[in-house]
Amino acid sequence: MGRQRGTRGRHAATTAALLAATVTAALTAGCTGGGGPGDDGRRSARESEQGTSPSATGASVLAVKLDNAAAARPHTGVDAADVVYAEQVEGGLSRLMAVYATQLPKTVGPVRSARESDLELLRQFDRPTLAFSGAQKKLLPLIDRAPLRAETPGSAPDAYSRGSGKPAPHNLYLRPERLIPEAPGQAALTTGFRYGTAPSGGTATTSQTVRYPAARFTFTWSDSRDRWLVGMDGAPATTADGKRMAAATVVVQYVKVRESAFRDFLGNNTPYTETVGSGKATVLRDGRAHAVNWKRADATDGTAFTTGDGTPVNFAKGQVWVVYAKAS
């Protein structure tokens, strides 16, 4: 589902930007850094050139990078997301990216740092807003050049705050309305997903687990809720108000996961999850598992899911979880 892109602003390599980058490098504690306000004090040169203020209305989705360590749970505001992406990060752990288009929760979090893979994944949207708490210093120039609006505690301090119920860095929360005053709407979800009648066939399935080296997700079908209940690392996943996380559709997408050029402050390599290309996937909906194919020809495209004969696969209406798993 390719789309024409407008002309994007060029990155301005001014002395002020270089100075700001130096400040940011000193304040950002690597890929796994999730420091508070001030850990990334820059607004990209692209933002300055276009005169966009932190409170300007977003033309696209809001994507929030979320901590998924045990100390960060339970999450806040994830149940309001239209799409939740799960990916592997350093040490075999996982991180989430929650994407909002049809509604904005009052609070989202805990917020953590960005990864290189996020830039490719977000190209499917038209200049999305990416909320995150920092990034590895060598990644920051790539984020500046990416066609997105980056918002951190340093660039939008009034949008972030620390909670008292968890230790830092697992307690940073975002107030979305401070970044985009209103939800952009369904049309902003240019993911390529189709919704409608369930595909024929499939296999009756009550539960499916996706394992990373040091994390796992389990999705269990609930007839009473007509949803897949989410489990993380062997425990039920709940929101901060005690509600069980649940998805209408779950996609286990098998992709290439390779080493990137980046490492965290401990020296662990950051995995790069390739979301452009093609491969196999399992779509879970209505208590059944469907073996399908996926294809995303270009980063500016959404992802198409089809059966073996090329028929598009419809998702159930409601929240979609996409879990990226390493292809064998």
Rank of each mutant, 00 (worst) to 15 (best):
S113C: 05
A20M: 15
E177P: 05
A246R: 11
R112L: 00
D82K: 01
L62I: 09
G163K: 04
P176E: 11
G192E: 14
Y100A: 03
T191Q: 00
S48H: 14
V252Q: 05
L104E: 01
L266Q: 08
V23K: 06
D82L: 04
A69G: 14
A188P: 01
A304I: 12
P128T: 02
G134A: 10
D82M: 05
A240V: 12
V257I: 04
H290T: 08
A187L: 03
F265L: 15
E120Q: 02
R42H: 11
R149H: 05
V61E: 05
T306C: 05
E90V: 07
H290G: 01
S161V: 10
E49W: 13
Q136F: 13
K295P: 03
T14P: 02
G192T: 10
V61K: 03
G308N: 04
V250E: 11
T102P: 14
T52K: 08
Q88V: 13
G154K: 04
N314F: 13
D298G: 14
A101G: 10
T152C: 01
L139D: 04
T238E: 11
V323M: 07
T191W: 04
R43D: 12
A297T: 08
G310H: 05
Q253D: 09
R5K: 14
N314V: 14
R46L: 11
G318L: 08
V89R: 01
G38R: 03
A13H: 13
T311N: 03
T205D: 00
G6P: 03
A16I: 11
G318Y: 12
F125P: 02
A63V: 06
P157G: 12
R288L: 12
F262N: 02
Y272R: 05
S222G: 01
S55Y: 10
F217L: 14
V64K: 03
V83P: 06
D226M: 14
E116I: 15
R115I: 00
A247K: 02
